[in-house]
Design a binder for these strands. Structure first.
Lengths: 156, 156
DNA sequence: ATTGCTGCAAACCTTTTGCAAGAAT
DNA sequence: ATTCTTGCAAAAGGTTTGCAGCAAT
């Protein structure tokens, strides 16, 4: 187990290796069951675009393993989120997206084109530190994206 | 007109004085019409809790000026937002909230108790600068709240 | 007199839930 | 065998939209 977030946010949960079987072991170790839907969702996240909305995941699993109910996908995502396998990110106007938990990065989401840019926690470490010091507030930069305009959209 | 946001985010729009009549003038100057619903919303925001959800505003205007349709409130909020009089903030799981635009502050929203803490832009200036420098991305810290846990909730 | 704003009701979209049946451990 | 997970269908929230009539400029 590793501290997954930045300074001031030591959240200890399962570590997620980038291989299906290891992920499934992690899920079982954490008390979860590995079902057809579990596999479908994990595979979609592994293969996919890295930043998938629930809708993306529903479409992707439908392609791979037709017949899974949408509500099941939501429940799987919620469960994997609680287990620490998956992380969800709120991105303002845009849809919430999901990705496998990794060593820690925040997201910039462009309000113009919707582009999602990963930013290593290290880059934003001072925010966490400052806010913790001045406000006693433990920021979780993984849980909400930072909005703004990407370089391309800014030019327009 | 003042640059309202932090470094790298010079958004020039109407400046909002904290008095109804001046706000209405600003709206008219920006090409908007001042209607009964406009006044109701502005008054709710001026008197209210500073951080009101659409639902809060609907309830508040209903108390002051009964009979305004919900959809009208949403349309007024949208219009005032476009005019730069109002700002809306996405706060993760919690409802989007609105407030009159002022000289610039970001928000911390506690995922535990929902508390909203204002943070002057100055405190977070380095984020904007860093992200602008390293990613060419112009962050707008007003548009999405930072989530985390407040001091109280952290103790529990 | 224009043109924008409003009320009403219905549509929308994403996410959640209850329940009985089915599957993983 | 037990307990968790699933499919279905319905509900729930929050927000948006079409339209004809009304109101601000």
């Amino acid at each position: 187990m590793l501290p997954i977030n930045g300074p001031g946010t030591a959240v200890y949960r399962v570590t997620v290796p980038a291989q299906p079987e290891l992920i499934y072991d992690a899920i079982r170790n954490a008390g979860g069951r590995v079902t057809v839907s579990t596999r479908a969702v994990v595979e979609a996240l592994l293969d996919g675009d890295r930043h998938l909305t629930a809708d993306d995941i529903i479409a992707e699993t439908e392609r791979r393993t037709p017949g899974i109910a949408e509500s099941t996908i939501y429940r799987v995502l919620q469960r994997l989120d609680e287990l620490g396998v998956v992380e969800h990110v709120h991105s303002g106007h845009h849809a919430t997206f999901y990705h496998l938990r990794d060593l820690g990065h925040a997201h910039l989401v462009c309000t113009g084109c919707g582009a999602i840019i990963d930013v290593p926690d290290r880059v934003l470490a001072t925010v966490s530190t400052t806010v913790a010091r001045d406000y006693g507030f433990t920021v979780d930069l993984h849980h909400t994206a930072l909005n703004g305009r990407c370089a391309d959209c800014r030019e327009r």
